[in-house]
């Protein structure tokens, strides 16, 4: 791909295609409708289930609209749902996730931007090796690093703390952030850097006065990637966050998959929606930027 973040997402100006017969158009729309149904169904079921009472759920009819919609399950999920013996809802998880999210997103973007900028200078010796190592890290399953990291973190005394989980997110966010910013900065015209050097700006001056003011697209994409990625993380939060900082995804899984007592499907689904709310909001608000983020996440520039 061309420069990840800078490549404009193609706009919807389709080319004149051979006109299909009416039957073909009907089949086309039918296929699209079926597909849309497949994709929308889980969201629909999540929503209607969360609005039903347990009595109604037990009668079956998972597709049926709620007879008397109520937000009771939502408040229960927020403040009463049980994980093990503790019944304080998943609101704790929401605030934990927020406390993890803000510093993790900010720090990983800053570090990624600086690293990507430095690596976009091709003259740096060993830069390619460092970049390759970072990329390899990005593709490795976490299981390869997790245990030694736990030991390292306990040795330093940050295992199971907010600082620990934030650091882990910065560590594992670095490859994609670096890739994104490096590609974006490499796509800027070389002449711009040359002009700034002739003007006497140094490495950091070029970064702050010339490059950073032009970085808005990359910063937006980075923020989308990191906010959804870190919010949706499960395994790192599970291992590194510690009992007091468990993120929302971990609490949600505990609520739903804890085996004590009767399963409250309406509360479970309400909790599930609540957990998905923030990334969904980011998705619906960011529109085409989200697609750019996807492309930037895995494609070279």
């Amino acid at each position: 791909m061309r420069a990840a973040a800078s490549a404009p997402v193609p706009t919807g100006t389709p080319v004149a295609r051979p006109r299909r017969p009416i039957a073909g158009r009907v089949a086309l729309y039918a296929a699209l409708a079926v597909a849309a149904l497949f994709f929308i169904t889980p969201l629909y079921i999540m929503t209607v289930t969360s609005l039903k009472s347990m009595d109604e759920i037990r009668q079956g009819g998972i597709f049926a609209l709620p007879a008397s919609p109520s937000l009771k399950a939502w408040t229960a999920a927020w403040s009463e749902a049980c994980t093990g013996l503790k019944c304080t809802g998943i609101s704790d998880g929401f605030f934990n996730s927020l406390r993890i999210l803000v510093p993790s997103v900010a720090l990983s973007i800053v570090l990624g931007a600086v690293t990507g900028y430095a690596l976009s200078h091709r003259r740096i010796r060993g830069g390619n090796v460092l970049f390759a190592a970072l990329l390899l890290g990005a593709f490795m399953p976490y299981q390869v690093f997790i245990y030694p990291l736990v030991r390292l973190f306990s040795a330093v005394g940050i295992y199971g703390s907010l600082a620990g989980i934030v650091l882990v997110h910065v560590i594992f966010g670095l490859p994609v952030m670096t890739l994104l910013f490096r590609n974006y900065y490499s796509s800027l015209p070389v002449d711009l850097f040359k002009a700034a050097r002739v003007d006497g700006a140094g490495f950091w001056q070029i970064f702050f006065y010339v490059v950073l003011p032009m970085s808005t697209p990359a910063l937006v994409v980075a923020a989308i990637l990191q906010i959804t990625g870190i919010w949706n993380d499960f395994i790192l939060g599970l291992v590194f966050a510690g009992r007091d900082n468990l993120p929302m995804t971990v609490l949600l899984n505990n609520v739903v998959n804890s085996s004590q007592g009767e399963k409250l499907y309406n509360v479970n689904m309400a909790a599930t929606i609540l957990t998905a709310l923030l990334p969904l909001a980011v998705y619906f608000l960011s529109g085409r930027w989200f697609v750019r983020g996807i492309a930037a996440g895995g494609v070279k520039g």
Binding site: A36, Y283, F290
Partner: peptide, 20 residues
Amino acid sequence: VFLYPYAISFIVTGLVWQWM
């Protein structure tokens, strides 16, 4: 519609499908 699931975590995905 086709892309929104990708914004959702695997945990949420798993729990919804478990329920369905």
